[in-house]
């Protein structure tokens, strides 16, 4: 078995008396889509925040490409190749879609302490950014401020940004949320191809998408992983059915 890209061991986070993350261990292996499912309030987003570095963990380890992430902030983890999308889209709203992606291209190229050369005429920024927008199907919206995009389009834009970063693993927090059935379908196809570029840890409520995409699924309930396995294993796991799927399936 190949070395996992992302290795999480015994991760914990308490908010007061609430154990939002209660000893979570999971792996993200090369080339896989690992879906993280669970009822509302199970701690999925908290876990994504801990991995990406926007919430500090109480204990436990996160190793990414063999390196311990302890003490690294969100910007440092992003530079190492941890690309993420947010549950509630997080973009520079006044900037156009293109400029949002250009920011990622600029970050990937190195220092932003460059003071004189205009970015808008810089083909080394605009060309890769435009290419990423084309890949996610947003090229026509390139010059629209991010604030004027639809919900679904903002999700696509976040993915374009993660792509532009040349991420070595993706953390996607509900990328299908707010998308119509058409949008979900095309995004599902897109993510399916993306796993060969970098593995994806996918938090998603759309079960059709999860079952279609996931190589493995982990089920999170009250901050604990109650099961990890293939789609079939999870579907037939009695505890999972009771805790979660029973209500929907």
């Amino acid at each position: 078995m190949a070395e996992p890209v992302l290795e999480i061991r015994e991760l914990r986070k308490n908010f007061g008396a609430l154990a939002a993350t209660d000893g979570v261990s999971l792996d993200l292996r090369p080339g896989e889509i690992h879906a993280l499912i669970g009822p509302n309030g199970a701690g999925k987003s908290t876990l994504i925040h801990q991995i990406s570095g926007s919430i500090r963990s109480d204990s436990g380890t996160i190793r990414f490409l063999g390196q311990d992430m302890a003490g690294l902030d969100m910007a440092a983890r992003a530079r190492l190749g941890l690309g993420r999308s947010f549950q509630i889209s997080s973009l520079a709203p006044e900037f156009s879609s293109l400029r949002n992606v250009m920011l990622a291209v600029q970050a990937k190229q190195g220092s932003s302490l460059r003071f004189f050369r205009p970015v808008m005429g810089d083909r080394s920024l605009t060309d890769p950014a435009m290419a990423m927008l084309e890949r996610v199907g947003l090229a026509e919206r390139a010059h629209l401020p991010a604030a004027e995009l639809s919900h679904g389009e903002r999700r696509q834009l976040e993915i374009a940004i993660a792509l532009a970063l040349g991420s070595k693993a993706f953390l996607f927090d509900e990328p299908m949320a707010g998308m119509g059935p058409e949008g979900s379908k095309s995004l599902t196809t897109f993510l399916d191809g993306l796993r060969h570029e970098a593995p994806i840890l996918l938090v998603e409520h759309d079960m059709d998408a999860v079952f279609a995409l996931a190589d493995r699924i982990s089920v999170l309930v009250y901050g604990r992983v109650i099961a990890t396995g293939t789609v079939d294993e999870i579907r037939n796991d009695p505890e999972v059915r009771r805790a979660y799927l029973g209500e929907t399936a």
Partner: peptide, 19 residues
């Protein structure tokens, strides 16, 4: 670009790896 992005959304700036 980085400075203005940070004004609009500091989380976004950090998420692309710029402190």
């Amino acid at each position: 670009a980085a400075l203005e992005a940070g004004r609009q959304n500091a989380t976004r700036l950090a998420a692309v790896g710029i402190a």
